[in-house]
Nucleic acid binder design. Structure first.
Length: 375
DNA sequence: ATGTTC
């Protein structure tokens, strides 16, 4: 029916006190008009993206839209136990030791990938964090809100945890580039061979990104001591089947965490707490998805303009919570400063008030590793 | 976001 677009479910999950840019909501509505889209959800971290917004999930019937997941296919947030005791952490000593997470891993990447059941792709990038908002962050437990839920998620108060945000590096980028070269910005009929080919490569990039996060965590603790145990790994850029919406339905997540994979971490900026939450409630009404972080408040160039006149890079290498920041990149340290992000407490509270999550614990950043730069 | 780069 030509009037179908009027009946599509477009929903923004954000309270009145959570400011969301109008242009992001316009992008959400416009994306909802694509053929076959049946549901468009904006989360409390919704902000404008290149064409389609970030912090959103889109359900389609029998159509795939690769550009809605974007180029960093498989990007996500993983939490690990570190094996490091939480008592009296010597941050300055670890800051001195931590290096090399931006240069290729010294191990055998081909063997590592093959033993994970993956093809030997993007081997030089495996184990590297990448740029932009990606990071590896050592954290301690700040407050346990739900002792039973937190324990079930594997949290132990006497042990530090490591949060890794990274993706599929050049691998996912090549997949989207190939799709755009062949099909421009159009979608794919889900029963086409082109869609099957995309999904196969997409799934490989998702698995590669997961392995990448795990290796980043292992490289990190190889310098501090400790041992990595995976607690959770939640992908926020992906296209997957959505059986809860219908047998031929798909959910596209762009900066939206999966709400059907158990507990997850919704990180604040490096100067704020991260939240370990458990999905609950009427998740189908939210496309079984959730916010993936605080969301940008200022565009990157605005953040640089506003903060350069107020802070030196040295001043930004320590946060108000006492955390240390390893970021030897004089643009990135401003672009990713805590001031450039929205209040994560507000974002999580919006999800709580919508009945979609319960908070298990808050996590406090200790050391945020971005890059040592090119030296 | 990017084995990207003025």
């Amino acid at each position: 029916m030509s009037t179908e677009s009027n009946t599509k479910a477009v929903r923004v999950i954000a309270s009145a006190s959570n400011w969301v840019e109008t242009s992001a909501i316009d992008q959400l509505k416009k994306t909802a008009t694509l053929p076959g889209i049946t549901q468009a959800i904006g989360f409390p971290d919704l902000h404008p993206g290149p064409g389609c917004p970030v912090g959103a999930a889109f359900v389609s019937d029998a159509m795939l839209y690769p550009h809605l997941a974007g180029n960093d296919i498989g990007c996500g947030m993983a939490l690990y136990r570190s094996g490091l005791p939480a008592r009296r952490p010597n941050l300055d000593r670890w800051v001195k030791k931590l290096k090399g997470l931006e240069v290729p891993w010294e191990g055998d990447a081909v063997e590592r990938l093959e033993s994970a059941g993956l093809s030997p792709a993007a081997t030089s990038a495996l184990g590297t964090i990448g740029g932009g908002n990606h990071f590896a962050e050592l954290q301690c437990i700040d407050t346990i809100i739900d002792p039973v839920g937190a324990a079930a998620a594997g949290l132990t108060e006497d042990e530090l945890v490591l949060l890794v945000h990274s993706g599929s590096r050049g691998l996912g980028e090549a997949i989207l580039r190939d799709h755009v070269a062949a099909h421009k910005g159009t979608g794919l009929s889900a029963d086409s061979t082109a869609a099957a080919d995309y999904v196969r490569r997409h799934d490989h990039a998702v698995a590669w990104a997961r392995e990448n996060r795990r290796l980043i965590a292992e490289r990190f603790v190889s310098m501090t001591g400790g041992e990595v145990t995976t607690l959770l790994d939640n992908c926020h850029n992906s296209i997957t089947l959505a059986p809860w919406a219908g047998p031929t339905n798909w959910v596209h997540r762009k900066g939206a965490a999966a709400g059907d994979m158990g507990p997850l971490v919704i990180p604040g900026s490096r100067g704020a707490m991260s939240y370990l939450v458990a999905p609950q409630g009427d998740l189908a009404s939210a496309a079984y998805s959730l916010a993936h972080g605080a969301g940008r408040k200022w565009a990157r160039s605005d953040a640089k303009d506003r903060l350069r006149v107020r802070f030196s890079p040295e001043a930004l290498s320590r946060t108000d919570l006492g955390g240390r920041v390893i970021c030897h990149d004089n643009d990135l340290i401003y672009e990713e400063a805590p001031q450039a992000y929205k209040d994560i407490g507000r974002v999580v509270q919006d999800l709580v008030e919508a009945g979609l999550v319960s908070v298990l614990a808050t996590l406090r950043p200790l050391i945020t590793y971005k890059t040592r730069g090119r030296e």
